[in-house]
């Protein structure tokens, strides 16, 4: 139905978005690629020139690098697992006939509106603080020693905080999917003698597949770049225990002031993100008829 002229018009209308995004992507990317092969240290500006692949070598030889990669994957995987499992359970609960569903949704969505530095500092200070935090008070009240959350379990604590921030998103999308289900199918299954669990497994869960796909896709995009929560709470420590790839790059750039190495790390992070993106889009693309 589209004529040649409307096709041209359509191209012109898409062009600004594509061109702007392309510039937004390609300029910093090429600069990063350029720096990654240069010797570029803010602390010794007199030394410069080509570094070859030295910056990349440094990253691959650093023991922190593999830790950072596994921490990054642990963070993404951990938060996805927690938010989806709890999200499904909470959505199933709220979907039951209960009083005050509107206010309930408002309470549940609230963490989504809290900006990351605030969320991180609330949890760090008001809850996880070893002397004054609420968890410490509870532990002392029960006659136990307070747990040093951020020192002893830094990654678990960060995953917990980020999961709290993203749980509303997962819950509400899954709830929306649940509420669009027809009750006849479930009633029919119930009459045929299907138990609660098999109704959930064979009818409810397949119905939520698309919603789960959306949750995974959108959350992964945001989780791969998580920075503020780590910066506010553990600063990547103790040692490098909670350093993720973005945080390791940040440390190279801002603390070690080695722009060359930071850029090499940046390129590695971008390649990794694209590998994740590729598999994600391939497996999910079909599911989201875009």
């Amino acid at each position: 139905m589209a004529t040649q002229s409307s096709r041209t018009a359509a191209r012109l209308m898409v062009a600004p978005s594509v061109i702007l995004l392309f510039i937004w992507m390609i300029v910093p990317l090429s600069l990063t690629a350029w720096f990654s092969f240069r010797i570029y240290r803010l602390l010794s500006p007199e030394r410069n020139g080509w570094a070859g692949i030295q910056n990349y070598k440094w990253f691959f030889n650093s023991p922190d690098f593999w830790l950072a990669i596994s921490n990054t994957l642990l963070l993404v995987g951990g938060v996805l697992t927690i938010t989806i499992v709890l999200g499904v359970l909470i959505a199933l609960l709220i979907d039951q006939p209960v009083w005050g569903q509107g206010p309930l949704r408002i309470l549940v969505i609230s963490p989504f509106f809290v900006m990351p530095p605030v969320a991180a500092s609330i949890w760090e200070n008001l809850f996880m603080h070893p002397q004054n935090g609420m968890f410490a008070s509870a532990a002392i009240g029960l006659g136990m020693k307070p747990i040093l959350f951020l020192e002893s379990y830094p990654m678990a604590s960060v995953i917990f905080i980020v999961s709290w921030e993203w749980l509303p998103f997962a819950t509400l999308i899954l709830l929306t999917a649940l509420q669009s289900m027809s009750s006849e199918q479930l009633e029919a299954a119930e009459m045929d003698g299907a138990g609660a669990f098999s109704r959930f497994w064979y009818i409810v869960l397949p119905h939520m597949k698309r919603a789960i796909t959306v949750v995974i896709l959108i959350q992964t995009i945001f989780l791969l770049g998580i920075f503020g929560e780590i910066f506010t709470t553990t600063q990547g420590g103790p040692g490098s225990a909670s350093t993720t790839l973005p945080y390791m790059i940040y440390k190279q750039a801002v603390i070690a002031k080695d722009i060359g190495r930071a850029a090499a790390g940046g390129i590695i992070a971008i390649i990794l993100a694209n590998i994740v993106a590729y598999f994600l889009m391939r497996s999910m693309g079909k599911n989201l008829d875009a």
Partner: peptide
């Protein structure tokens, strides 16, 4: 095109901090 647009968001911000 839509997928490409979304994939530009996958670039970790920290990776391009200095150029930006």
């Amino acid at each position: 095109l839509l997928m490409w647009m979304l994939s530009t968001k996958m670039m970790p911000a920290a990776a391009v901090l200095i150029p930006m």
